[in-house]
Simulated scan of single mutants.
Amino acid sequence: MDIKEFCLAHGFDMSKCAVALGGGSFVLVELKTSPVEFLSLAEDDFERGGLSALINATTNVKRAIICQLDQLLISFGYQSLRLDVRKR
């Protein structure tokens, strides 16, 4: 299976794809809140301590992971914000 067949089989929007002959880098879509911001909030909560802060830290780590996944999927042309977490 070549890359084009793979992309079509997995529903990638090929109209948003391009080939850079001189190489290049992959650019992620910017979101309102970045995964790094969620991690920073989690660190602040963790350092504050206490049960409530630890629960918030865990929630913000989960948000960071989901945000990173959304960022990647959106960059590949998926509408991941319409999917529930299990489908992502």
Score class of each variant (00 low, 15 high):
residue 64 A to M: 03
residue 57 A to K: 03
residue 6 F to I: 08
residue 30 E to A: 10
residue 58 T to F: 08
residue 76 F to K: 07
residue 3 I to Y: 09
residue 10 H to K: 10
residue 7 C to N: 04
residue 77 G to D: 03
residue 87 K to D: 02
residue 37 E to V: 05
residue 23 G to D: 09
residue 15 S to C: 00
residue 51 L to M: 06
residue 19 V to T: 10
residue 35 P to R: 11
residue 87 K to A: 10
residue 17 C to Q: 15
residue 2 D to G: 14
residue 84 D to S: 07
residue 21 L to N: 09
residue 37 E to F: 10
residue 71 Q to H: 02
residue 24 G to S: 11
residue 68 Q to Y: 13
residue 68 Q to M: 11
residue 88 R to S: 04
residue 20 A to V: 04
residue 28 L to F: 14
residue 70 D to V: 08
residue 43 E to S: 12
residue 56 N to A: 14
residue 85 V to T: 02
residue 33 T to P: 01
residue 6 F to L: 13
residue 43 E to F: 10
residue 2 D to Q: 11
residue 26 F to A: 11
residue 26 F to Q: 07
residue 78 Y to N: 02
residue 46 F to M: 15
residue 40 S to A: 08
residue 67 C to W: 04
residue 22 G to W: 04
residue 43 E to R: 15
residue 53 A to C: 12
residue 13 D to Q: 08
residue 42 A to Y: 12
residue 38 F to D: 15
residue 62 K to M: 06
residue 1 M to F: 11
residue 64 A to T: 09
residue 85 V to W: 00
residue 14 M to F: 05
residue 12 F to N: 13
residue 60 N to Q: 11
residue 83 L to A: 02
residue 84 D to K: 08
residue 34 S to L: 07
residue 67 C to H: 05
residue 12 F to T: 13
residue 24 G to R: 11
residue 25 S to F: 04
residue 16 K to A: 04
residue 32 K to E: 15
residue 61 V to N: 01
residue 45 D to G: 00
residue 9 A to T: 11
residue 32 K to D: 15
residue 3 I to P: 01
residue 59 T to V: 13
residue 61 V to R: 01
residue 81 L to G: 07
residue 15 S to P: 00
residue 42 A to Q: 06
residue 22 G to L: 06
residue 64 A to R: 07
residue 66 I to C: 00
residue 78 Y to E: 06
residue 3 I to M: 09
residue 88 R to V: 01
residue 16 K to P: 00
residue 44 D to C: 14
residue 26 F to N: 10
residue 28 L to H: 09
residue 65 I to A: 14
residue 51 L to C: 04
residue 18 A to S: 05
residue 81 L to Q: 09
residue 20 A to P: 00
residue 62 K to D: 03
residue 73 L to Q: 02
residue 83 L to D: 03
residue 74 I to N: 02
residue 63 R to V: 00
residue 21 L to C: 09
residue 45 D to F: 08
residue 68 Q to K: 07
residue 79 Q to Y: 05
residue 24 G to Q: 09
residue 12 F to R: 12
residue 32 K to I: 12
residue 84 D to G: 04
residue 11 G to H: 12
residue 65 I to R: 07
residue 55 I to N: 06
residue 39 L to T: 05
residue 13 D to R: 09
residue 54 L to D: 09
residue 2 D to T: 12
residue 5 E to K: 09
residue 75 S to L: 02
residue 20 A to H: 11
residue 9 A to H: 13
residue 65 I to H: 05
residue 9 A to P: 01
residue 85 V to N: 01
residue 11 G to I: 07
residue 14 M to V: 12
residue 41 L to E: 15
residue 67 C to F: 08
residue 48 R to L: 10
residue 63 R to M: 08
residue 64 A to Q: 12
residue 35 P to D: 13
residue 52 S to M: 14
residue 50 G to Q: 10
